[in-house]
Simulated scan of single mutants.
Amino acid sequence: MGDWESPFKKYPVRNILSYNYLGYENKKKSGYNYKILSCSYYYGGSSRVGKYEIYEFNSDSWRVLDAISDDWLYLWPDVAMSLKGDTYWLDSETNENPSILRFDFITEKFERLPLPSNSDEHNRLVILSTVRDEKLALLCQYSDSTGSLKMKIWLTNSKTDEAKDLSWSEFLVCKVVIYDMTRMKSFLVDEENKKVLCCYKDHEYRTRIYIVGEDTYKNVYREVLQEQRSRVAPRLFSYVPTLVQIPTSQSNPCCKRKR
């Protein structure tokens, strides 16, 4: 077992991107086994190289995932969702055959899951979210047969750890009356009141937050106009309190790697 050697040492550092995702496998007898999925990519023109590794807290060690091919290089790292120990992304490959990608921390493999329908309602804007620590939610914006812009929210029918294949149901359909909401980046679902909380940047790059329902459009936050404005919209995430503690390592997992 020698020291870990980067596969990217011959490439310019500025072209290397690394992202880490926390997950776990639930071992009923011994408890949670927490892991970190590390994805490192090199982008240079038409060239692309990827490396995937797993760090296990219990064993304080890194392993290279050799079985994962470069087909998974086009993950959108900024829209990853963590749910029941697994990580979910929207497929970033254009809009022709969109899908959801899941990394299973038990099998340590990626898998592709279908969206709720095959219609063109997924071809304008699609955003992934979670409902507490139980379900996935999907928001789609599309133009109907009359040319009106609609928003449709889907929810998975069961908790994600209760079914291998996800099934979906329509939760909410409403007309989009604010054009800037095509800039939306994140949302949260209120199942009980059948509403969603949407976050986006308007045409002046001010952050806005709206509560949206079948007949509701309520602005609950508008950022004060500033001289220097970020064009990146903040994200809304579900937070579920937990008393589970992640074991600490005696070493620095980012620096100590094995072949």
Results as ranks from 00 to 15, higher is better:
residue 2 G to C: 13
residue 7 P to I: 15
residue 11 Y to P: 00
residue 17 L to A: 09
residue 18 S to R: 11
residue 19 Y to W: 10
residue 28 K to T: 13
residue 28 K to I: 11
residue 30 S to L: 13
residue 30 S to I: 09
residue 32 Y to I: 06
residue 40 S to Y: 04
residue 42 Y to E: 09
residue 43 Y to Q: 10
residue 45 G to P: 00
residue 45 G to V: 04
residue 45 G to L: 10
residue 46 S to V: 10
residue 53 E to C: 12
residue 55 Y to P: 06
residue 56 E to I: 02
residue 56 E to M: 03
residue 58 N to R: 07
residue 61 S to R: 09
residue 69 S to K: 15
residue 71 D to F: 09
residue 73 L to M: 15
residue 83 L to M: 07
residue 83 L to Y: 00
residue 84 K to S: 10
residue 85 G to K: 05
residue 88 Y to S: 07
residue 90 L to N: 04
residue 100 I to W: 00
residue 102 R to I: 12
residue 119 S to F: 04
residue 128 L to E: 02
residue 129 S to V: 08
residue 143 S to T: 04
residue 148 S to K: 15
residue 151 M to P: 00
residue 152 K to I: 08
residue 153 I to F: 01
residue 154 W to Y: 14
residue 155 L to C: 04
residue 155 L to R: 02
residue 156 T to F: 03
residue 157 N to D: 14
residue 157 N to F: 02
residue 162 E to V: 07
residue 166 L to W: 01
residue 168 W to E: 08
residue 170 E to K: 14
residue 175 K to M: 06
residue 179 Y to E: 14
residue 182 T to S: 12
residue 193 N to W: 00
residue 194 K to E: 15
residue 194 K to G: 10
residue 204 E to F: 04
residue 205 Y to V: 12
residue 205 Y to C: 08
residue 208 R to H: 05
residue 208 R to Y: 03
residue 210 Y to P: 00
residue 212 V to L: 13
residue 222 R to K: 13
residue 225 L to E: 08
residue 227 E to V: 03
residue 229 R to S: 15
residue 230 S to T: 15
residue 233 A to I: 02
residue 237 F to C: 11
residue 242 T to L: 05
residue 245 Q to V: 14
residue 251 S to M: 13
residue 255 C to I: 12
residue 256 K to P: 00
